[in-house]
Nucleic acid binder design. Structure first.
Length: 140
DNA sequence: GCCAACGTTGGC
DNA sequence: GCCAACGTTGGC
C-alpha cells in the first residue's frame, strides 16, 4: 500500500469536517493542479494518507483512507479535473507539526518541506513510519 | 495580511 | 514556443 498526504485549510475543510462524514467519507474535490491530479490517479483503494492542516494549524492531524480511485471531479465544469474519495481513519494521538518535520534530519525529502505548494503529495514508506512514530502512534 | 514561490494564461 | 502578466497557495 502506498502512502500520501492531503492538505486542506481547516477553516475551509478540516479534519473535523471529514470525521463528521463518517464511513461515507468525501470527494477530495477542488484540486486544480495537474501534478496533484496525476498523483491522485496513482492512488488505489485502501491506500492511506496523512491529513495536513495548511495555513492555520500547520500540522498533520490524522490518517485517511482512499475509498474510491480517481474519477471526474463533480465540482469541475469542464470535466478536466479528477478526484479520489477519502474517509477519516483515525486521529493521531499527537499532531505532528511542520516545525517537527522540518527539524527532523530523517525527513529532508518530504514534499511538505521541498514543495510546500503541492496540495496532494506522495509519502515514502520510511517517511510514513517516522511521522507515525513522531505522532506517538502505536503499531497495529 | 503580506509576499515569495509557483503555476497558468495569452499575446506576440 | 517564449515569457510577461496574472492568479493562487501557504508559510510567516
Amino acid at each position: 500500500m502506498a502512502h500520501w498526504l492531503f492538505k486542506s485549510e481547516p477553516d475551509v475543510f478540516g479534519w473535523d469536517h471529514l470525521t463528521a462524514l463518517g464511513q461515507a467519507g468525501s470527494e477530495w474535490d477542488g484540486v486544480r493542479n495537474y501534478q496533484a491530479r496525476n498523483i491522485m490517479r496513482q492512488m488505489a483503494i485502501g491506500d492511506t494518507g496523512f491529513f495536513y492542516h495548511s495555513r492555520t494549524g500547520l500540522e498533520i492531524v490524522g490518517i485517511v483512507e482512499v475509498i474510491a480511485t480517481a474519477h471526474p471531479d463533480s465540482t469541475a465544469q469542464d470535466g478536466k479535473w479528477e478526484c479520489v474519495d477519502v474517509r477519516a481513519l483515525k486521529r493521531l494521538p499527537r499532531p505532528v507539526t511542520l516545525d517537527q518535520i522540518k527539524s527532523d534530519d530523517r525527513l529532508p525529502d518530504m514534499v511538505l518541506v521541498k514543495n510546500s505548494r503541492l496540495s496532494v503529495q506522495p509519502v515514502s514508506d520510511a517517511e510514513w513510519q517516522i511521522v507515525l512514530e513522531l505522532a506517538g502512534h502505536s503499531p497495529d
